[in-house]
Each structure stands twice: as C-alpha cells, then as structure tokens.
C-alpha cells in the first residue's frame, strides 16, 4: 500500500485547491464546483483512514457525503437558476446584499 501520509497529503492538497477556488472565483457555478472538490478531498481522507484501520466506517461516511453533495448540488443549482432569472447574472458580486 502507498504510505498513508501521501494519501492524506493528496487530500489536503485538493482541499486547499478547492478552498482557493471557492474564495477567489466570482462565478457562482465554479464556486459550487470548488465546494464539490473540497468534499471530495474529505472523502479521500475518509477512504485513506478506512484502508489504514481496515474498517468500513469510512466508506459508509463517504456514501453519506456523496448523498449530501448530490442534495447540495440540486438545491444550489436550483438557487443559481432562480438567481439568473431574477438578476441575469451568476456573479457573486451582484448578490452581495447579505455580505456584512
């Protein structure tokens, strides 16, 4: 098996890339995709630890995360479509009413 450090390192790297995307991009759809990437990085850590411990709990948790990610995408893209109808834009700068 590959060293666990490398698996967790890959997971952390993908999470940081996703964080950078969610923080710096202005396109709402790309921000949602970056959040998907962060969820996937967490999934990778779960699978790596499940492999290390030799138990399935991590796999079950990954299945739950996939379910939550699917829900998040469905609702999030519903919001994006409704937003585009009302504002003709998916730029987060145009919908900053709730931003401090």
């Amino acid at each position: 098996m590959v060293p666990l450090e490398h698996v967790i390192g890959l997971s952390g790297l993908l999470f940081v890339i996703g964080t950078i995307g969610a923080l710096t991009r202005r396109n709402l759809i790309v921000i949602l995709m970056s959040i998907e990437l962060m969820l996937n990085a967490a999934n990778l850590a779960f699978v790596g630890f499940a492999r290390a411990w030799g138990q399935h709990d991590g796999h079950i948790f990954v299945l739950m995360v996939i379910v939550v990610a699917a829900c998040e995408v469905a609702v999030g893209l519903g919001i994006v479509v409704a937003l585009f109808r009302n504002r003709e834009s998916v730029n987060v700068e145009d919908v900053s009413l709730l931003k401090w």
Partner: peptide
C-alpha cells in the same frame, strides 16, 4: 482510481 488503489471498490 485512487479509491481502487485504496481497496474501496464500491466507493
């Protein structure tokens, strides 16, 4: 592919 290497075939 990484999951397959980590023996998580169903995932």
């Amino acid at each position: 592919i990484v999951y397959v290497v980590l023996e998580a075939h169903l995932v």
